[in-house]
Computed example of a mutant assay.
Amino acid sequence: MKSADKIKVGISIGDLNGIGSEIVLKTFEDARMLELCTPVVFASAKTITFIKKKLDYDITFQGIEDASQAIDNKFNVVNVWKENVNINFGEETAEGGKYAFESLRAATEALKKEEIDVLVTAPINKHNIQSEDFKFPGHTDYLAKELEGESLMFMITDTLRVGLLTDHVAVKDVASAITPELIEKKIRIIYKSLQQDFKIQKPKVAVLGINPHSGDNGVIGNEDDEVTKPTLEKIRSSGKLVFGPYSADSFFGSGNYKNFDAVVAAYHDQGLIPFKTLSFGSGVNFTAGLSKVRTSPDHGTAYEIAGKNKADHHSFKEAVFKAIDIFRNRQEYTELTSNVLKKQSKKI
């Protein structure tokens, strides 16, 4: 198992016109972070030098050509590109999207090659990053394809975890998108993640209803009675502690979420509005279900404050901490599972 100072945290820089570079540099301006991990930023020495001077950060870095050359106790910057890049803080530009993808693609390749151990992604603009090579609603779907996993958007803090049945889906399409197969798949992902990533042996999971008041017995839609309830009953019959569907409007305000290890929301805003209300600035977006660990802060590019040295970096720092914790938990889970299998094989 790796010691703490050997974990390599890969970082994609996000949209250069947003606050991504600012929160990355603010996080690692604290030299104590280098005792915890080895940061590997995918950008360029020229770009980081410009941003460092522009925002007046006291941080030194090591320019490298490949992630495998990363040096412990240094802030490493992989030269993904060599040319000068026009940085226009606060503006949505095609160039900003282009280099956001170049950084993400290089970081993902390094993750697949195990040149880095985990990936923390700074915010992208989901519009200007679109291209022939990137036709996805966001990081989650791109990484699911590249890492060949079953992904689930899992918003986490130390005390609250919210997963989504549907993530970047238009509200008008939510009900038709939620099928028994989708519910079973997402519950399976979240259940395994709670066990291997968060060390919870017998998780308790709550599921929110699709409709207001979970349909009020068919008065406000039949989806919860016809799809959600029978599917949850089937899942419970397999031994999983899965409960619901709960009426979403009172679930968080009443504090009921505290009785569960995770909450599964039907759609994006149903889960993320209460999550960000309760934990904004400390929440982390974790992509559960992948073969590799990926986290990100719980906010976007924040163009309105980009380049003004006003961005709060604590969510990004938490994303680094959570990526390291989850990586270690997975190592322990793998070792324990392997030992159990060895003992069982000896008995046979």
Results as ranks from 00 to 15, higher is better:
residue 4 A to V: 12
residue 6 K to N: 12
residue 8 K to R: 15
residue 12 S to N: 09
residue 13 I to G: 03
residue 16 L to M: 08
residue 17 N to E: 07
residue 18 G to D: 01
residue 18 G to S: 07
residue 22 E to G: 09
residue 22 E to Q: 11
residue 25 L to K: 09
residue 27 T to S: 11
residue 28 F to N: 12
residue 31 A to G: 10
residue 32 R to V: 08
residue 35 E to Q: 11
residue 36 L to A: 11
residue 37 C to S: 13
residue 39 P to F: 00
residue 39 P to T: 09
residue 42 F to L: 11
residue 43 A to H: 08
residue 52 K to I: 08
residue 54 K to D: 14
residue 59 I to S: 02
residue 61 F to L: 10
residue 62 Q to A: 11
residue 64 I to Y: 08
residue 65 E to W: 04
residue 66 D to P: 04
residue 67 A to K: 02
residue 74 K to A: 07
residue 80 V to H: 03
residue 82 K to I: 08
residue 84 N to Y: 08
residue 85 V to G: 03
residue 87 I to C: 00
residue 92 E to C: 09
residue 95 E to D: 12
residue 96 G to N: 06
residue 96 G to D: 01
residue 97 G to Y: 09
residue 99 Y to I: 12
residue 100 A to E: 09
residue 103 S to N: 10
residue 105 R to N: 15
residue 110 A to G: 09
residue 111 L to K: 08
residue 113 K to P: 04
residue 114 E to P: 02
residue 117 D to T: 11
residue 118 V to C: 12
residue 119 L to P: 04
residue 120 V to M: 05
residue 121 T to P: 11
residue 122 A to Q: 06
residue 122 A to H: 12
residue 123 P to Q: 05
residue 137 P to T: 06
residue 139 H to W: 12
residue 139 H to T: 03
residue 146 E to W: 02
residue 149 G to C: 07
residue 149 G to V: 01
residue 154 F to T: 10
residue 155 M to S: 04
residue 156 I to T: 02
residue 160 L to T: 05
residue 162 V to F: 06
residue 162 V to M: 01
residue 163 G to S: 13
residue 166 T to Q: 05
residue 168 H to I: 10
residue 168 H to V: 07
residue 169 V to F: 06
residue 173 D to Q: 10
residue 174 V to E: 07
residue 177 A to I: 07
residue 180 P to A: 11
residue 183 I to H: 12
residue 183 I to M: 10
residue 187 I to E: 05
residue 188 R to Y: 09
residue 192 K to C: 08
residue 196 Q to K: 06
residue 201 Q to A: 15
residue 201 Q to G: 13
residue 203 P to R: 09
residue 205 V to L: 15
residue 207 V to H: 00
residue 208 L to P: 01
residue 209 G to A: 00
residue 215 G to W: 04
residue 217 N to G: 09
residue 223 E to C: 08
residue 230 P to Y: 12
residue 233 E to R: 14
residue 234 K to G: 13
residue 235 I to N: 12
residue 236 R to S: 14
residue 236 R to E: 14
residue 241 L to N: 14
residue 244 G to E: 04
residue 245 P to M: 03
residue 251 F to A: 01
residue 252 F to L: 07
residue 256 N to M: 00
residue 257 Y to K: 00
residue 257 Y to I: 06
residue 258 K to V: 01
residue 258 K to E: 01
residue 266 A to E: 02
residue 269 D to F: 04
residue 270 Q to R: 06
residue 270 Q to W: 03
residue 272 L to S: 01
residue 273 I to L: 00
residue 273 I to H: 02
residue 277 T to P: 07
residue 279 S to R: 04
residue 283 G to Q: 06
residue 286 F to M: 04
residue 296 S to D: 02
residue 299 H to S: 05
residue 300 G to T: 00
residue 302 A to Y: 10
residue 306 A to K: 01
residue 307 G to P: 03
residue 309 N to F: 02
residue 309 N to T: 03
residue 311 A to T: 05
residue 316 F to R: 14
residue 327 F to A: 00
residue 329 N to H: 06
residue 335 E to K: 14
residue 337 T to H: 14
residue 338 S to K: 14
residue 339 N to S: 15
residue 340 V to W: 07
residue 343 K to F: 14
residue 344 Q to R: 15
residue 345 S to R: 15
residue 345 S to H: 14
residue 346 K to D: 13
residue 347 K to M: 13
